[in-house]
Design a protein around this nucleic acid. Sequence first.
DNA 1: GTCCATGTTCTTTA
DNA 2: CTAAAGAACATGGA
Length: 293
Amino acid sequence: MPELPEVQSVVDALSPILTGQTISQTELLRPDIVSFGRFQRVKKVSPSLNEDLPSLLQHRAITRLYRRAKRIILALDDTSHLYFHLGMTGNLTLNPTSTLPHTHLILTLQSPAPRQTTQVSFSDPRRFGQIVYIPPGSPPDHDLGPEPLSLTPAHLGRLLASARRPLKSALLDQSLIAGLGNIYVDESLHAARLHPQLPANTLTPAQTASLCRHIQRILRKAIAARGSTLRDYRTPTGESGGFQLQHKVYDRQGLPCTTCKTPILRILHSGRSTHLCPSCQRLPRQNRRTFRL
DNA sequence: GTCCATGTTCTTTA
DNA sequence: CTAAAGAACATGGA
C-alpha cells in the first residue's frame, strides 16, 4: 500500500505528536518482523531478540520522526534509529481503541510536561513490512537512490540515461530513484504521456523534464490528499486517503481516459499490473518488438 | 476453488 | 555475461 505519499502522510500525522516523547514500554508480539542493523528478511529469530528490542528502546526519547524513500524513521536520543517499512499492508496506528488483527509491535510513549500516554501500534497482515533497529553510530541508508521530490530534470536525465531497460522498471528501482511504486509510476507516466515500455535511455531532454515535473506534481498532490487508499492503507488516525479519487489510470482499466476517452488498458509488465492510455501513451514502432538486430 | 493486491528479493530463463 | 521474467514471502478480499 505504501508509496512515498502514504509514508509521508503517516510521518506528517505522527511527527508532531511523537517528537519529544519517551518510550516507556515496547510490546513485541512478532519478533520475526524486526531485524538488526539493516533491512533483511528474518528467517530465524534468536530467542534473545525478544527482549533485546524492548530493552534497547526503554527510556529512549524520540528526537525526530522523518521519511526516507518508503521508510518511516524514528531518530532516538542515543543516536540509534528505528525504521518502519510498511510493505504492502502495514499500518501505524495512533492510540488504537482495540488491538487490530496482526499487530506485531506496540510502543507506549510518555510526554514529559503534561503527563500523557500515547500508543503507536504496527500491524501488517501479510508481513511484507519490516522494522529495523539501527544501533548508535551506524551508517544510515545504503542502496537508495535520490528522493524524487528533490530531483532536478538534469539529474533524472542522467539516471535514466544509464538504463537501457523499460522506463517503468527503472522508475520502480529503489536504488535508482527511491519512493515511487506501482501507483505513482503509472500515474506519472500517463501524465507525461510516456509509454512504460519505452527504453529509459531514449527519452529526449524535453521528455525527461516533463516526466520530472509530473512526478513531483503528482506526489505533491497525493501527499496533500493523504495518499491513496485502495484497500488497507489508513492514516495513523484511521482515515482513508483521498488521492485514489484523482487517479487517471491506476485501477481504471476499461474506463475512459480523462483526456481522450480511449478505454484505459491494463497490461502485465514485469509481473506488475500496469495501467495506461494506449492513445495518449504511444510506443514508437521501433520499440514494439524486442528482437535484437 | 480462482485471481489479485500499494513491496522487495532471490532464482530462473532467454 | 546481462536483462527480464518469475517465484517467493503471507494473508485476505472479490
